[in-house]
């Protein structure tokens, strides 16, 4: 399973999201290949799931991956429930 965490520049906020997504996946006992990048790189990258926020999700419509939206990047419970809904 391939998951990419996406932000506007691919440098800061997507890496924070990735750290917390990895924490949650570990908690859930799910193993996945998690990466982080910016929106335009993500558009050309194959993935099963893309995790991002509402602001950027619109730019990723049409991507074959399932889009998962997280509003609070520091709320591990929200990340967990968003992931559980789709996994």
């Amino acid at each position: 399973m391939k998951i990419i965490c996406v932000c506007g520049l691919g440098q800061g906020t997507s890496l924070i999201l990735r750290m917390n997504v990895e924490n949650v996946l570990k908690d859930l006992g799910v193993s996945a290949d998690v990466d982080h990048m910016d929106v335009s790189s993500a558009s050309g990258t194959q993935a099963d799931y893309i995790i991002t926020n509402n602001e950027l999700a619109q730019s990723l419509q049409g991507h074959a991956a399932k889009i998962v939206i997280v509003n609070n990047y520091f709320d591990l419970e929200e990340i967990k429930s968003s992931l559980q809904e789709v996994l």
Binding site: G8, L9, T13, N72
Partner: peptide, 16 residues
């Protein structure tokens, strides 16, 4: 790119 870096309620993380 807009305010996508407002990562949580009340918290923004601007960067370049």
């Amino acid at each position: 790119k807009g305010p996508y870096f407002v990562l949580a309620p009340q918290i923004a993380l601007p960067h370049a």
